[in-house]
Amino acid sequence: MDTLAAPSHAAAPRAASLLRIQTIYMEPAVEDYARGREILARFPDAQRIEVPSHWNIPGLHGNEGLVGEWLRTKRDVLVLGVRKSLSCRHNGRSADWIAPGTSNGCAMACAYCYVPRRKGYANPVTVFVNIEQVCDALQRHAVRLGPKPEPNQVDPVYWVYDLGENGDLSADALVSDNVRDLVALYRRIPNAKGSFATKYVNRELLDYDPQGKTRIRFSLMPQRTAKLVDVRTSPVAERIAAINDFVDAGYEVHLNFSPVIVHEGWRADYAELFAQVADALSPRARAQIAAEVIFLTHNEALHEVNLGWHPKAEEILWVPRLQETKRSENGADNVRYRSGTKGRMVAIFKALLEEGLPGCAVRYAF
């Protein structure tokens, strides 16, 4: 494979608005990797604390007393680790395959995010430093697959790999060049493309030269709702305004309406959102646009955590009269909108989308 991208320190000033790293928890092997040393060099004044595992950090994970410091922890703390599992999981919705992620957790603080459910009362971003191993594993996987035999709702030509299931790569790019390396990887793999959803507009990605082989899914919801639950993210209007520029830079850009949160006035809010998108899209962006729609899934443990730092959000996230318990694919008990009600909601949403943004294909909705 190609060598790693040269370290770019231009991200440091941008990172200051989202990250002010004061403490770095790091596994013992981090400094054995070039990427680990590069990241440490970006934050030379941060205190370094060695821990046996990025998943088990005493005083951070499971520390109920930290819940009131949820946002400060995201801003001030970085975790560095070595990715152990390099396997891909079959998906079939957002992507054909879920790639081994190069991060876990996020610098942003969306109140509905499922990642903190395994970590307890703190969820700063964890970045994995063995990027070469991850890229090698992804390339080998694509080679074994060979050409995609037939089109599907994910993509008509390429195998698509979701690169950011448990994080936001646009924000991760403020910490390291892992994302630049992943974009370069898929630029040269002939039968595959990468994909990730984002709520953060990082215009440094415009220089990554994806050549149509990376799909960015800008996550959108009405600004009135986003102001409440999309904490520390880019404003929705900024995300919409970025779509044309990312298309012109060589990205495939889709829309990720996730999560759709049902509350009083949600239909009018989405009608307004679709009109905003329609007004903003260039003909080139409009010709390639498609959408995925995911209604809210919540969790009682996360509900309890949120009550400790952002109880206002729970007024629209935790609505038992509309929700029912459902066992997820990974065995967790989550709450989702009641099945009959949800079916009607999905139909309403798709009708609103077709009216406001006609011709925008819905790759999947649930």
Rank of each mutant, 00 (worst) to 15 (best):
C113I: 05
V115L: 03
V115D: 01
P116L: 15
R117I: 07
K119H: 14
K119W: 14
G120Q: 10
Y121P: 08
Y121V: 12
Y121F: 14
Y121S: 14
Y121D: 15
A122N: 10
N123T: 08
P124R: 05
P124E: 03
P124W: 08
T126Q: 08
F128Q: 08
N130W: 00
E132V: 12
Q133S: 15
Q133P: 05
A137P: 01
Q139E: 14
R140T: 07
R140N: 01
R140W: 02
L145M: 14
K148G: 01
E150M: 13
E150L: 13
P151M: 14
N152Y: 10
Q153V: 12
D155F: 15
P156F: 09
P156E: 14
D162Q: 08
D162T: 03
D162A: 11
L163M: 12
N166R: 10
G167H: 09
D168N: 09
S170V: 06
S170W: 00
D172F: 03
A173P: 01
L174I: 12
V175I: 15
V179I: 12
R180C: 06
R180S: 06
L182F: 02
V183S: 05
A184H: 09
Y186K: 00
R188H: 07
R188A: 01
R188N: 00
A192V: 12
A192Q: 09
G194E: 02
S195W: 00
S195R: 15
F196C: 05
A197S: 15
T198Y: 05
Y200A: 03
Y200C: 04
